[in-house]
Simulated assay, not measured.
Amino acid sequence: MEQSSIQELYIQYLTGVLTVDETRELEQRLETDERFRQQWELLKQEAEALGASAYLQRIDSAAVLQRIKFKRKTNFQVYKLLAAAAVLLLLSVGGYWFLHQPPKEKSIPVASLVTHKAVQLESNGATIQLADDSGQHTIALKNATINAAKGSMQYASLDTSLNTLSVPAGQTYHIRLSDGSEVWLNASTRLRFPFHFTGKREVFVEGEAYFRIAADARHPFIVNTPLTAIQVLGTSFNVNTYQPNKVKTALVDGKVITDNRKGQLEELKPGIQADYTNGEGFSTSRFDPEEVLSWKDDIYYYHSKNLAALLEEASRFYGIRFTAVEDLPASQTVTGLMDRKRLEDFLSDLKTTAKLNFTVKNNEVQVHL
């Protein structure tokens, strides 16, 4: 077993995610495999000598997460490993050691809170709720015919007035526009668009969305955000406006030019993300497509995120309100992932490692130390 694999197993052991059977297998391996036992003892000695804080700081959490993402793609039965990554705390002060942590509890009563609101379409003064089921639905409006199935819609119409598609927290949605372009909308996102384009193709987005634009050199496609405008031909890209006064545009393929409506332009190549911050302008960097687009698969990766920001993200991602009833340590950060289908595992991991407690009250999850 490679050293990095042993370290991942050691992290699982420390964070208490091993089952009884897995723990028994580990004990047998320690008794029968001398090379494995020696490597294990070296990790244990290093951890005990440094203490939890220093040891966890030395772990390359980004590298571990990359390895876990690869394993997740090749083996969907490794959720225990994912859970271990999700609780890799990078503590700058203090710490807590989990050498003899009991099995995690799975009794946080949150399932009843997952009551998603309907996706809504506002068109020509009417508001339509799009059903969240697997059946096909045809909705006849005065100005359009909507065909909707679970999590997706397309339509037929010649109406050029703007409509608004609103996706609530905890959900995603897909729409095919009249020109054949496709848009995937993340939680808490709004898209304003016409049923029918005439000349310039133009939409408005707030939140996060992934666009796959149909090529049409004669008719540029414009994506407007609260701070920028993105000029597109045929291309795929992600745009994120969740943070106030900031827009992130990540180009997957093709070509886009994003501008701040004040004459400042940034032309992107595939694999490059442009971050526009109000008052500071543009900055560019390479991005990991799997991380940026993971929300489309109901996964969210996070790096060195403080607990307050993580709970805010969790509220939007799961569609459940998380409220801290007392100040959380600003110096404590976490690297890992959230899986929209595994809310209780996410909470159990934070309870084990960050020593957070959760109480369900007034239709929200209250968080306290």
Rank of each mutant, 00 (worst) to 15 (best):
R24Q: 02
R29N: 00
F36K: 14
W40I: 02
K44I: 00
Q45K: 03
A47E: 06
S53N: 02
R58L: 07
I59Q: 12
A62W: 06
F70C: 04
R72A: 13
K80T: 02
V87C: 04
S92A: 13
V93G: 12
V93F: 14
W97C: 02
Q101N: 04
I108T: 00
V119Y: 00
V119G: 05
Q120R: 12
S123Q: 06
I128H: 05
A131I: 00
Q136P: 08
H137T: 02
H137P: 07
T145A: 07
I146D: 05
A148Q: 06
Q154C: 08
A156D: 14
T164V: 02
L177W: 05
L177F: 04
L177A: 05
D179Q: 13
G180V: 08
S181N: 11
V183A: 12
L185R: 11
T198W: 00
G199T: 00
F211Q: 07
F211H: 10
A214P: 04
A215Q: 04
R218Q: 09
R218P: 01
P220K: 05
T225W: 02
A229R: 15
P244G: 11
N245W: 05
T249S: 14
V252T: 13
V256K: 11
I257L: 14
I257E: 15
Q264A: 11
E267F: 06
E267L: 13
L268T: 00
K269Q: 15
G271Q: 12
A274S: 15
N278A: 13
G281N: 11
G281P: 08
T284W: 08
P289C: 12
E291N: 11
L293W: 10
W295F: 11
Y302D: 14
H303R: 15
L311A: 10
L311H: 08
D327E: 10
A330N: 14
Q332N: 08
Q332P: 07
L337E: 07
E344I: 14
L356H: 00
N357Q: 01
Q366D: 03
